[in-house]
Write a protein that binds this DNA or RNA. Sequence first.
DNA 1: GGCATGATTTGATCTGCATCAAGGAAGAGG
DNA 2: CCTCTTCCTTGATGCAGATCAAATCATGCC
Lengths: 249, 249
Amino acid sequence: MPHDLAFQSSQQACDVCPIRSRAVCAHCETDELADLEGMKYYRSFEAGQVIVWAGDGMDFVASVVSGMAGLTQQLEDGRTQMVGLLLPSDFLGRPGRQIAPYTVTATSEIVLCCFRRKPFEHLLAQSPHLSGRLLEMTLDELDAARDWLLLLGRKSAREKIASLLVILARREAALARQRPKGRFAVELPLTREAMADYLGLTLETVSRQMNALKREGVIELEGKRRVVIPDFEALVIESGDDSDGGLPS
Amino acid sequence: MPHDLAFQSSQQACDVCPIRSRAVCAHCETDELADLEGMKYYRSFEAGQVIVWAGDGMDFVASVVSGMAGLTQQLEDGRTQMVGLLLPSDFLGRPGRQIAPYTVTATSEIVLCCFRRKPFEHLLAQSPHLSGRLLEMTLDELDAARDWLLLLGRKSAREKIASLLVILARREAALARQRPKGRFAVELPLTREAMADYLGLTLETVSRQMNALKREGVIELEGKRRVVIPDFEALVIESGDDSDGGLPS
DNA sequence: GGCATGATTTGATCTGCATCAAGGAAGAGG
DNA sequence: CCTCTTCCTTGATGCAGATCAAATCATGCC
């Protein structure tokens, strides 16, 4: 039985929270934060643990504080596709919906800041700061899903791998309010199988393409779960789209 | 130059609107509807016309009244993926964003109920009925995008075609507040190429699979743009997922 | 250390769909 | 009626990535 970190950090204050500036609560005022503090609790999961099963009831919603999780959908015969990637500051759960439509699995050790559903929904109805931010985040997620549709529908295996690394690098940089450039290192808290499920490939193809990119010097592997990108712009070219990621300036 | 139908219908009243019960304005009260009437105007486009180009400014948002449109994304080398399908009652545009990220093309003749951006955003900030409904619709769209990810990542060409027909049948039935069952006819306001762009296939594969389904009696074709589904449940089985579409009862 | 367990790599072969290449069909405009 | 043009179908061939099969590597446990 894994050691549950939940109660170690159960009373961390919002004003020192690392995701404060990007999470659902980003626009909240002091009094709203106080309300949120009253309904929140932390939970931790280890890599591989299931956080929610599709079809189960959920009595909470949550923000990812650290770590990574995947939303996963399945066909009856077992074919699996990841349909959402939860990184720090992302939101888990849908207000107004009790039953989870997707299975959520921790792909690395993860810490969630959970809010009890009922009080959260109540506050959501009161606070335009909260509901406005949630709308904004949902629209961003929809944009990300649409980029992902392009990836799954039209990119080659090699481009898919490169795209995933670009996404992870951008997200990691965004938390530090930067953008990736030149030499850059990324944590890769995913097994080859999880990557395959994300990219609509098999794990063998993922392995082959990763090693091909490595052989050609586009990436360097430090162990299996850490990637160094010697030239970020070169990786972006491999990813197939030349967009700058839509970030300003 | 096509004949512009825009001004023929420029003053249709909201209370006789066919999409009233499902569009952004669904939860609005009489006074909010009056505000909306003041900022709205209708525009029509013919099949194949571009409604918005990616990168262009948009000074309106809109609801689809009738017809169909596709949001489309492209890689520099021309590979094209549809990333959104706009059917009656769907919402076009993102509040707070001026520049369109995707090209929007009418795939059939289409009528839009447009709202001037600024007044709409103002009302959105005032009205929880409006913003709440928009959040709800955005979350539904995200769910649809996630089903689509599964389709693109893991389904065979045959399953993809069947899935598209199931989606169109469900949407057509939903407008009449029903669910498809038994024998059912669907309009297919898409060229083979548009279907291919939706499904991440080539138009040749779409054509072959459509005719294969026809040969096997799963579908019947009335002309090229109308499909009769003799047994809806059989089509759902071909689509690969046995879900009931998530509708209650 | 020795041994299980799970993750990853690597190789050989197969196959579904893309690609390339002609034709048909059906409507629009002269 | 003829001739574009656009859309669709059908056939032949090739290839990227799936599938099947075995090592290799790591890690934790006894």
